[in-house]
Computed example of a mutant assay.
Amino acid sequence: MVLSSTAGKWKGRVHMVEHLGNDTLVHLETVIGPLIVRAGREAAALPRDEVFATPDEKMLHVFKNGRRVSA
C-alpha cells in the first residue's frame, strides 16, 4: 500500500500510528471503513493527517463477514 498526501484511491484520516522497528502501521478511517496500512519505517503520517492510500492489487486481501474473498 502506498500512502500519499496528494492523491490516491482511498482518502482517509490517520487515526493512529504504530512504529514497530522496520515497519509502521498506519490506522486510517476512510469512507470504505477502517484500514490498517503497513508502511515502511520512513512513513511520516501523524494522527489527524489527511492521506490517500493506494493498494498494490497483487497484495490486496479482501474479507467479507470474516471470510477472505477475491480482490
Score class of each variant (00 low, 15 high):
Asn22Ile: 07
Thr30Lys: 02
Ala43Gln: 00
His15Glu: 10
Ala44Glu: 05
Trp10Asn: 03
Val69Tyr: 11
Ala44Met: 07
Arg41Gln: 13
Glu42Cys: 02
Leu35Lys: 01
Leu60Gly: 06
Gly12Leu: 05
Arg41Phe: 09
Pro34Asn: 09
Ala71Ile: 12
His19Tyr: 11
Asp23Pro: 02
Glu29Phe: 09
Gly33Gln: 01
Phe63Arg: 08
Ala45Gly: 04
Gly40Pro: 00
Asn65Ala: 12
Glu18Tyr: 08
Glu42Phe: 05
Gly21Glu: 05
His19Ser: 08
His19Asn: 10
Phe63Cys: 08
Arg41Val: 07
Arg38Lys: 08
Gly66Asp: 04
Arg41Cys: 12
Arg68Leu: 13
Phe63Asp: 04
Ala39Gly: 03
Arg13Glu: 11
Trp10Ile: 06
Ile32Trp: 11
Leu46Ile: 05
Pro34Val: 09
Leu3Ser: 00
Phe63Met: 08
Leu60Ser: 09
Val2Met: 15
Met59Asn: 15
Gly66Arg: 03
Arg48Asn: 08
Ala44Gly: 07
Thr24Ile: 03
Leu60Lys: 13
Asp56Glu: 11
Phe52Ile: 05
Gly33His: 01
Thr54His: 03
Asp23Glu: 11
Val31Pro: 03
Gly21Leu: 03
His61Gly: 11
Lys9Ala: 14
Ser5Cys: 06
Glu57Ala: 15
His15Phe: 11
Leu46Ala: 07
Leu20Arg: 14
Ala53Pro: 03
Ala7Val: 06
Val2Ala: 15
Pro47Gly: 00
Pro47Val: 00
Gly33Val: 00
Met16Gln: 15
Arg41Ile: 07
Ser5Trp: 05
Ala71Gln: 13
Pro55Arg: 04
Gly40Tyr: 02
Val31Tyr: 06
Ala39Glu: 03
Ala53Ser: 09
Val69Lys: 13
Met1Arg: 11
Leu46Trp: 04
